[in-house]
């Protein structure tokens, strides 16, 4: 091959690589990064008759002076508003609390299932695994909806309990936070089971035998060996439930009551009912800032897991 041909080939390759990078890159910049900055900008803007354009507008033709005017026009008014109206910080706190409580319940429900799966006969495990994953493929909305028929006052649960004579009057579960907890545990359970199962499945069972040989009872061996070794999976599972639950909208709207405060619902209503875009944007920005902490912790845990596996 002549030097020229090689050169063309290299140039072709460089061009190919540039295109390969540029296409997904530009797509994400245009449809992920830019929209995010628009939210940030609008959160710092004033509402102008509830319609765009929002003040201030960036006037590029005015050059540097336009840029200065643009930044001078931005302010934190909407964020100040969020701190003044107790609705917002109550909604943030209650989202965190609901997410934390439901994460703990999901762990308590999910761990024994993951444990049972990891200790099941090897030929059963693929089937059990598929049974855990299968609900994940069915519509989230439908899985939440399925509890409406169970938990309502005339629902299946109350009918069964009344028929058994356990209760005399129907329990009010629907439209309370308890229904929200049930909905979260139900829909996010696979996210808890899978990482815990993965760590338990990889665990060396000779460690347990060693512990028992050294005089541990089975229960002691569980608390001293199995549980600490599955810590990585537990942490991963908890974050996988906790992080998406904070911004959850469908579950509190369908199962929760009017007093169930969750920030995803507040944002939705601020936008669709009140049409207050700057406040909705400010709510979104604060929600993201709250989420950064658990996301960074989660990433760190994942990295540690990967390093531990070598």
């Amino acid at each position: 091959m002549s030097g020229d041909g090689l050169d063309t080939r290299h140039r072709g390759e460089a061009l190919r690589k540039a295109v390969l990078i540029a296409v997904p890159y530009l797509w994400l910049v245009a449809l992920f990064l830019v929209p995010f900055f628009i939210v940030l900008k609008i959160s710092l803007s004033d509402i102008a008759l509830a319609r765009p354009p929002y003040m201030p507008q960036l006037d590029l033709s005015a050059g540097l002076a336009g840029l200065r005017d643009f930044f001078a026009g931005l302010d934190f008014e909407n964020f100040v508003f969020l701190t003044e109206d107790s609705l917002y910080w109550k909604a943030y706190l209650s989202s965190l609390q609901i997410a934390a409580v439901s994460t703990i319940i999901t762990l308590l429900v999910g761990y024994p299932i993951a444990y049972g799966m990891a200790r099941a006969a090897p030929e059963w495990r693929p089937t059990l695994l598929m049974l855990v994953i299968l609900p994940f493929w069915t519509s989230f909305l439908i899985r939440v909806y399925s509890w409406m028929g169970i938990l309502s006052n005339e629902g299946t649960l109350n009918s069964v309990l009344l028929w058994l004579g356990v209760i005399d009057v129907p329990l009010q579960i629907m439209n309370t936070n308890i229904a929200v907890y049930i909905g979260v545990v139900y829909t996010y359970l696979p996210f808890m089971i899978l990482p815990i199962y993965a760590t338990l499945d990889k665990m060396d069972s000779s460690l347990l035998e060693a512990a028992e040989d050294l005089g541990c009872s089975r229960t002691e061996a569980f608390w001293l060996v199995t549980l600490p070794l599955s810590k990585g999976g537990i942490i991963a599972g908890c974050f996988l439930v906790f992080i998406p639950t904070i911004g959850e909208f469908v579950i509190p709207t369908l199962l929760g009551g009017s007093d169930t405060l969750m920030i995803g619902k507040v944002l939705w209503e601020e936008f669709f009912s009140n049409r207050d875009w700057p406040v909705a944007s400010a709510v979104a920005v604060v929600l993201l800032m709250i989420l950064i902490i658990p996301i960074v912790l989660f990433q760190r845990n994942e990295q540690k897991q990967r390093e531990a596996e070598g």
Partner: peptide, 10 residues
């Protein structure tokens, strides 16, 4: 990890 409400809004 982005909440859907934020992706949608933006």
């Amino acid at each position: 990890v982005m909440p859907e409400v934020i992706t949608g809004l933006s």
